[in-house]
Simulated assay, not measured.
Amino acid sequence: MRAIWKGAVSFGLVSVPVKLYSATESHDVSFRQVHAKDGGRIKYQRICSIDGEEVAYADIAKGYETEDGEMVILTDDDMAELPSTSSREIAVEKFVPSDQIDPMLFEKSYYLEPEKTGAKPYALLRQALLDADRMAVVTVALRQRTTVAVLRVREDVIVLQTMMWPDEIRQPDFSIDIGEVKDAEVAMANMLVETLAGDFDPSEFEDDYAEAVESLVKAKIEGGEVKKTPTSTKSSGEVVDLLAALQRSVEAAKTARGEATDETSDDDSKPAAKKSTTKKTAAKKTAAKKTAAKKKAS
């Protein structure tokens, strides 16, 4: 893994220099949109919804859309005035009981690795979190934005998990009317829970969809059902096309100047020689006429 951030965890007068690593990665199956006829990738253009013209990347600005649909354009100067921070500190604000934080607030997970000089205070913080069964609520600046996160222990490693802001959690706008619940129904539900009770083991679950897609793709490859497109091969096709285009351009320029091209030089060598001989004969006849005229005049 490659560290994506370096800083220090600070609580009280203790500072623990650490490195930050992304703790998760997505294995979700992704597909590309392609032309069903030949497998070519579908490209998208940046088209303005007002004038219908394609917009260059340099002309694209940030816009904030208000609730009534109006658009406010924000310039680079406007963005520079927004509050940002480049602090390299993970500041512990307080230690809270682990069961007080709703898992729905968790967003992104990172591993914290101590630098060599911070190994001992790192271990002390880790043990303190385990013994107290608490999480450390911290503030940290990632990508120049301050966010709230927690520190917790997972398999002897301190994990930093960024959190969503409270107003980012949506409230359900529906209610559930269950009517009357009988004691017998509750007892049966409890029995079902006890029947299926167990410990969570993530290795028991597999992404059967991703495996099915991989098997399907493998079968199609083995069956020869593959579209050979320029973007899906590592051949030098684009270079060959470029050379061919340049060659055609050179030949067109030579033709425009009346010069022999590479394609016609071999086949037209004899006619070209005849034309040259004809020109020489005509020149001799002209010179003979001029000489005769001078003799008559004398």
Score class of each variant (00 low, 15 high):
Glu89Tyr: 02
Leu105Trp: 07
Met79Ser: 01
Pro97Glu: 14
Gln100Arg: 10
Glu67Phe: 07
Gln100Tyr: 08
Ser109Arg: 08
Val72Phe: 10
Leu82Trp: 01
Ser86Asn: 13
Val96Lys: 05
Thr75Ser: 15
Gln100Ile: 13
Ser86Ile: 09
Gly63Met: 07
Val72Tyr: 04
Ser98Arg: 13
Tyr110Cys: 06
Glu67Gln: 13
Asp76Glu: 15
Thr85Met: 01
Pro103His: 05
Thr75Ile: 09
Gly69Met: 03
Tyr111Ile: 05
Leu105Phe: 15
Gly69Ile: 05
Gln100Cys: 01
Pro97Asp: 15
Leu112Gly: 06
Leu112Met: 04
Glu93Tyr: 03
Asp77His: 06
Glu70Trp: 00
Lys94Pro: 00
Val92Gly: 08
Gln100Asn: 13
Thr85Tyr: 02
Glu70Tyr: 02
Thr66Asp: 11
Gly63Pro: 07
Met71Ile: 15
Glu89Leu: 14
Phe106Lys: 10
Leu105His: 10
Lys94Trp: 01
Thr66Asn: 13
Glu107Tyr: 10
Pro103Asp: 06
Tyr110His: 08
Ser109Cys: 02
Pro97Lys: 12
Tyr110Trp: 06
Met71Thr: 11
Glu65Phe: 04
Glu81Thr: 13
Thr75Glu: 11
Lys94His: 10
Val72Lys: 09
Asp99Cys: 09
Leu112Lys: 07
Asp78Tyr: 03
Ala91Trp: 04
Ile90Pro: 05
Ser87Val: 04
Val92Tyr: 02
Ala80Lys: 15
Ile90Asn: 04
Ser84Tyr: 06
Thr85Asp: 14
Pro97Trp: 08
Asp99Thr: 10
Ile73Met: 13
Gly69Thr: 08
Glu67Lys: 14
Thr85Ile: 03
Arg88Asn: 11
Glu65Gly: 01
Ala91Gly: 02
Val72Ile: 15
Val92Gln: 06
Ser86Pro: 00
Met104Asn: 07
Ser109Ala: 15
Asp78Val: 06
Pro103Glu: 03
Ile90Tyr: 01
Leu74Thr: 01
Thr75Trp: 04
Tyr64Ile: 12
Tyr110Glu: 08
Phe95Gly: 02
Asp76Asn: 12
Asp99Trp: 08
Glu81Asp: 12
Glu113Ser: 14
Thr66Trp: 02
Leu74Met: 14
Glu89Trp: 01
Gly69Ser: 09
Lys94Val: 11
Ser84Asp: 03
Ile73Arg: 12
Pro83Asn: 01
Glu70Arg: 12
Phe95His: 07
Pro83Leu: 00
Pro97Leu: 08
Ser86Val: 08
Ser86Arg: 14
Leu74Ser: 01
Asp68Cys: 00
Leu82Ile: 10
Phe106Trp: 04
Lys94Tyr: 03
Ser84His: 15
Phe106Arg: 13
Val72Trp: 03
Glu70Lys: 14
Asp76Ser: 09
Thr75Asn: 07
Glu81Ile: 01
Pro103Val: 08
Arg88Glu: 12
Glu113His: 13
